[in-house]
Simulated assay, not measured.
Amino acid sequence: MSTPAPLRIDFVSDVSCPWCAIGLASLEQALARLDGTVQADIHLQPFELNPQLPAEGEDATDHLMRKYGIDEAQVDANRAMIRERAAALGFAFNMRRGSRVYNTFDAHRLLHWAELEGRHLALKKALLRAYFSDGEDVASHEVLVRLAGEAGLDPVRARRLLESGSYADEVRTQERFFQERGIHSVPATIVNGTHLIPGGQPPEIFERALREIAASAAG
Rank of each mutant, 00 (worst) to 15 (best):
S2W: 02
S2Q: 11
P6W: 04
L7P: 04
L7Y: 02
L7T: 02
I9S: 05
S13R: 00
I22R: 00
G23L: 07
A30S: 14
L34C: 03
D35S: 15
G36K: 01
G36N: 00
Q39E: 15
P46E: 05
P46A: 04
E48A: 10
N50C: 00
P51Y: 06
Q52H: 14
E56P: 03
A60G: 03
T61L: 07
M65V: 12
R66F: 09
K67G: 00
D71T: 10
D71M: 10
A73E: 12
I82Q: 04
I82T: 14
A87G: 14
A88D: 11
L89E: 02
L89D: 06
N94R: 15
G98C: 06
V101R: 11
Y102I: 12
N103P: 07
T104S: 15
A114F: 08
A114N: 09
E115T: 12
R119M: 11
K124A: 15
L127P: 07
L128P: 06
D134R: 13
D137M: 06
H141Q: 13
H141K: 09
V143S: 06
V145T: 15
R146Q: 09
A148D: 06
G152T: 05
P155E: 03
G165P: 09
G165T: 09
S166Q: 15
Y167I: 00
Y167D: 09
E170L: 11
R172Y: 06
T173V: 04
R176A: 13
R176K: 09
F177H: 14
F177Q: 03
R181N: 12
R181D: 06
I183G: 08
I183N: 02
S185T: 14
T189C: 14
I190D: 05
T194I: 09
T194D: 12
H195M: 01
L196T: 14
P198I: 03
P198G: 06
G200R: 08
P203R: 02
I213D: 00
I213L: 01
A215C: 04
S216L: 14
A218R: 15
